[in-house]
Simulated assay, not measured.
Amino acid sequence: MAGTTLGGDTGTGTARAEAVLSRLQLLVTRKLDGLLQGDYAGLLPGPGSEAGESREYRPGDDVRRMDWPVTARTTLPHVRRTVADRELETWMAIDLSASLDFGTALHLKRDLVLAAATAMAHLTVRGGNRIGAVVGTGAGSVPKSRFRRRAPEAPAAAPVIRLPARPGRKEAQGLLRAIAHTEIRPGRADLGALIDMLNRPPRRRGVAVVISDFMAPVDGWARPVRKLGVRHDVLAIEVVDPRELELPDVGVLTLADPETGELHEVQTADPKLRHRYAEAAAEQRGAIATALRAAGAAHLRLRTDTDWLLDIVRFVAAQRHARTRGTTR
């Protein structure tokens, strides 16, 4: 499959968001429909998560669902029913910090965030399943007075949009449209607090998806992810641009921090600098992967310079194969 484009490379706003979203929905529908086999339509497939009633075994039943305690008491083989297959609830934590409004390859990182959210919605919103989201972005800048100087004010709290979980494709499209139209503000969302919102109020077991570049300090979000994994199947989707992993040799490069607006001049012709940068980036990504693995989360990395849809297809296929063989992530 050739590289997949998300739409126009320039411009923002409603028209672009709608064009990107329409393109994404068409691509996801065409490429991912073949992966949805069976009653469970979630990304992390399995026999079910909520225990239901037991019934006597019938020829053709999955022996992995045998209810051995009931079988021992009644001396007749019984299987355990599960009820989550048709009542799956998926919640997404969408990080739209200013660092996501960046991209040097095929896509912007925010486009990949929307692509991942679209794929999650398509993979889960079937058979009465519900999907909701919490969306966080930066706090924005505080306007300065035109007439007098004053001490800088404390930054405003980062806004969070909560989109309630509802069943149906129409509702899922509305949720994706709300995400696509979310304005990215300067500053960084509190990723730990955003993830923690998926723990409140307590919900029955379901799927929790965290979509971010995870550029925030690991200590700030690792514990909320571990807490989330106690009750839910957690999927972490990490969005990465190649320039965040290594610097090209292009001479003096002026870099702007998208979250603070600070400018930095970097002499990329220095091989030692490029080597230190690559080492630091590898160490950072390694720490992210270690924290997610310790939390028991499935980890999918999407890059702006690769075919994101092919990466998702491979990931879903690998998850299904692992579950079929009874292995862990």
Rank of each mutant, 00 (worst) to 15 (best):
G127L: 07
V230M: 05
D95L: 12
L273D: 12
A222K: 14
S99V: 04
V207D: 09
R320P: 00
L255D: 00
R58G: 03
T5Y: 13
R188P: 05
E153G: 09
A180P: 06
G261P: 01
G42Y: 08
R226G: 15
R329S: 04
P242L: 02
R146Q: 15
K227R: 14
R203M: 14
N199R: 15
A156P: 04
D190P: 05
D33H: 06
V234F: 03
G326C: 07
T10C: 00
V28D: 02
H275R: 15
V79T: 06
T12R: 02
R231P: 00
T71N: 03
R325M: 08
R58S: 05
E246N: 01
V160N: 05
V240G: 01
D33W: 08
D190Y: 11
S22V: 05
L32T: 07
A295R: 11
V209M: 06
D270T: 07
V134P: 01
D233V: 05
R274K: 08
G132R: 12
W308G: 09
E265R: 15
V252W: 09
I179S: 10
I195Q: 07
V83W: 08
A41P: 00
T4L: 10
D39I: 11
N199H: 13
R303Y: 10
V250Y: 00
A295M: 06
R323V: 10
K144Q: 15
Y40F: 14
G251L: 11
K170G: 15
V240F: 00
G220L: 09
A117P: 07
L88I: 06
